[in-house]
Write a protein that binds this DNA or RNA. Structure first.
Lengths: 195, 195
DNA sequence: CAGCCTATACTCGGCACCGGATATACGGGA
DNA sequence: TCCCGTATATCCGGTGCCGAGTATAGGCTG
């Protein structure tokens, strides 16, 4: 059976091990330090599952079992040639091919007609504010990272996220206005249904 | 135990049943017809799991068991008062509070430094083209829906998605240019690592 | 040096989810 | 009337994922 590219955490593991051998807990620490868990969901339970799966497919191997002091044993893993190939190929796919995803907001906004227009307006404005705060937080983070001397390429994904968030905020602002002024298509019917 | 809002398919079920009672298969059909499965992932296996879970939490009830002709029995469900409350509350949350999500492209682009710049450029351009095609397809779909006399509110989520996709396309175009011209921060180092 | 908190390192049971299997009914062509 | 493809309707076994639990070591405080 060929390896299934479900959990992106496996991608992170391959990427980390392509730097140097590590044991799972160290991978988690490194991901934290580098703010990688912002982009790839990290969960201890999943980490060990994923590592074991990668080992099963011989994309990584247990290269050593250390025993420092009286701590629990820790297994250090290293990436194999097949693992490196998988990493690169997966990466290419992730970048070149847009995957079908299901953002939760799309699900929510598609049913917004079920709520009264006045409520909808308030909720959308709340989201607009929240997105604004996220943007501000990202700006601060970028400042910090740049101040540490990290090049733009090291936080390129944050750059991307900011671009998307700005678009979302703009759309929310438009929708709020259109709702407030009743210019969104189908508004009259919408209001009628809620009185 | 309170109901866990994991699978958005449960939201779709509540929304459909708030129109009129249905049996699971009919829900699936209706979702298809309305292009709802574009926004909410539909899977027959999950559908029955989710319906059973909703029933267990008494958010819906089995209102009848039909037996038309000699077909398999079909259980028709109806939403309860608690179910309607849950639907509205969940909806409010989805709209007002941005959820932490992990788009796969972010994971990919965050590791783009592992690929040679020339390859990265090509991949990003491929994605840009693909996103362009998605936008074109959405425009066609919008045209069709509007032609059928549906108001904007009925396909508001597509409007949102187009806004986000346009932002993504613009960002990809920027990144492609910055890579081609070597103006992305850290480019020299990037190129050095790949020779 | 007792006591407590945090960091280290992993384990495990449960469950939601998914893909594919199952089984019957219906309609249309040869 | 036989056959086959499609529509109807549901079920189920496997698996990946997650959160919470476990256990020891080291460090800090009074």
């Amino acid at each position: 059976m060929t390896f299934k590219r479900t959990n992106p955490l496996a991608l992170a593991v391959l990427a980390l091990l392509s730097e140097r051998p590590m044991h799972p807990y160290e991978m988690a620490q490194t991901m934290r330090e580098r703010h990688q868990e912002e982009v790839i969901k990290l969960n201890y339970g999943s980490l060990y599952t994923v590592v074991e799966s990668l080992r099963g497919h011989e994309l990584i191997t247990a290269s050593a079992v250390q025993k420092a002091g009286n701590r629990p044993e820790r297994t250090v893993y290293a990436v194999t040639a097949a693992g490196t190939a998988e990493l690169h190929d997966w990466l290419r796919d992730l970048i070149a091919v847009p995957a079908k995803e299901y953002p939760r907001f799309e699900a929510g906004i598609s049913l917004v007609g079920l709520l009264p227009p006045a409520d909808a307006l308030e909720l959308v404005q709340q989201r607009e504010a929240a997105v604004g705060e996220q943007l501000a937080a990202l700006a601060v983070l970028l400042e910090k990272l740049a101040g540490m001397g990290l090049p733009q390429l090291a936080w390129i994904e944050l750059d991307y996220r900011m671009a998307v968030l700005r678009a979302e905020r703009a759309w929310l602002a438009w929708f709020a206005t259109a709702t407030r002024e009743g210019t969104v298509g189908g508004y009259d019917d919408w209001e009628d249904r809620h009185r």
